[in-house]
Amino acid sequence: MKMKKWGVLAVSAAMVAALGLFGCSGGNDAKPADDKKAEEPKTEAPAEVTLMKDGTLTIVSSPDYPPFENLENGEIVGFEVDLFNAIADKMGLELEIVPLQFDAIIPAIAAGGQGDVGVSGFSVDPDRAKEIDFTESFYIDDQAVAVMDSSSITEDNAAEALNQADVIIAVQTGTTGETFAQENFPNATIQGYGNSTDCFAAMQSGNATAVCTNLAVVNRMLKDAYSDARVVLEIATGEEYAAVVSQDNPELTKQLNEAIKALKDDGTLEELTQKWF
């Protein structure tokens, strides 16, 4: 009696699972070519941009990264927001911003369904490029390390003083700042946080010795909120900022690149850079 019940349950569960899988695989097989390479899946329908919502460019962003994007009076503002408003204008689309934690954005864009473009101060990186496509870059930034004023670490000894076992460096998970800190300060503890504001809060509260993130962000954070902290190390990593697009959507990347190029040519990009940095 009991055995039978279990059997029925197992069989029905298996069937539901199988149905689910078939449903998904069917939906997916239709789109990309059967090839394992996802790079150029859509050869049959070239000039068509797939957008999540018709007429709307949905960008996914982690609004904790001033001056690129952050929340001000409940609204997401920043350099990249302005830039993508201009880009959407150029493309004749409405702009919609979906907030998402930084380290979830690339997986979300790769998987699709949450947005069309990931715009959150992404540095162009060949490793990342395996999962998603980058647009043309629109800003170049460097890394920086900040500590509280009370810290004994100074500009002169920063390179060695940060690479000590008792040093905790707060970083935002999934950022180039995280890998930079891991690579260059292997002896220190690299503590990951979900967003960059938490990194600074952790440093201020003494949970971390230093914060390592992009220079423009450090400068803005110190200026706006953490006047009792200072920059001890700047490294010219020359990271190019770009937006990320799913590899299944090369046409969108192409159109975004055209729009970015047009904005570079007509001076809008320069204007926005002046405004925000």
């Binding site: 979830a104 690339i106 997986p107 998603i132 998970t173 999934g174």
Partner: peptide, 14 residues
């Protein structure tokens, strides 16, 4: 979740 998150961030897989 923290460990899973770091791997998700580096692999882009769920």
């Amino acid at each position: 979740v923290m460990y899973a998150k770091t791997i998700v961030a580096s692999t882009g897989s769920i």
